[in-house]
Amino acid sequence: MSVWINEDAKVIVQGITGRQGLFHATKMAEYGTNLVGGCTPGKGGQTVDLGVREVPVWDSVEDAIKATDADASVVYVPPPFAAGAIMEAAEAFDRIKGEGVIICITEGIPTLDMVKAVAYVDDRPGIRLIGPNCPGIITPGDTGGAKIGIMPGHIHAKGRIGIVSKSGTLTYEAVAQTMSINEGQSTCIGIGGDPVNGTGFIDCLAAFQADSQTEAIVMIGEIGGSAEEEAAAWAKDNVTKPIVGFVAGATAPPGKRMGHAGAIISGGKGTAAEKFAAFEEAGIHVARDPSEIGAVLKTALEQAGLL
């Protein structure tokens, strides 16, 4: 098993004819993702060449799902139209299948657009949104796997560590850390660094706890908001698998947005110190230095009798 996305999940790409969409669709297909097509309004009936194969393009998400029975859709649509693309996918999955996973990679979507889109998705209980402003989700397989997003596929391997993170490249760092102690990953989920997003830490922790393939969890947070504190408190009562936690931004000054729209200490709240303290309070194994995630994970696995 794995989380939300199986290694053979059927995936469509929204914005597949755009520069970003086509580039990453090609990379995903190369990795082995079961990419079955895409959509771009006005380009229905065309095909796009992904190197390993050609796939069809539809005008709407509805047409694409009807034709392919897709399980997931990944959004590479530019910021002004991205929230609309998320809602289109939510409506189509809900009507046709009653379920579906939407992964939004787009960075720079207006916050109030996301407030609307998240409410729309939440009104449809079978639909899950991951992101926006995230690297995506990857479930490495025995050969290939499902890579839905922009992460470099080749750094991953199938294994028993679940990774959830607000960051992109820092997630890759965490993946490399697990590989440095010869551990692969069950599923890696980037939930994104925006203030308002879909799937949160708690959803991911719950899914990892329920997943038989996942035996330990790495959780990477950032300054801003209180999602890490809430997740830690929840994990204390609900997660029995060992968790290793890191929070980026211990040296960030208050009131300054650190790249990600959500990474800002406001009104003295959302500091790394508070989040690390919440992790420790919840019995999470803390790595203060991301290059120690591997070592801390190894200790956590040993203590849990998993090594």
Binding site: T169, T171, T251, P253, M258, G259, A263
Partner: peptide
């Protein structure tokens, strides 16, 4: 580019916001 000036003396050039923050943190450590 996304840049925020701080008070120290080691310049950092990183790809990704989370990794950029983590890099600053490790320099401090």
């Amino acid at each position: 580019l996304s840049y925020v000036k701080l008070d120290g003396n080691i310049g950092c050039l990183v790809n990704g916001a989370g990794l950029a923050m983590a890099t600053m943190d490790v320099i401090k450590l």
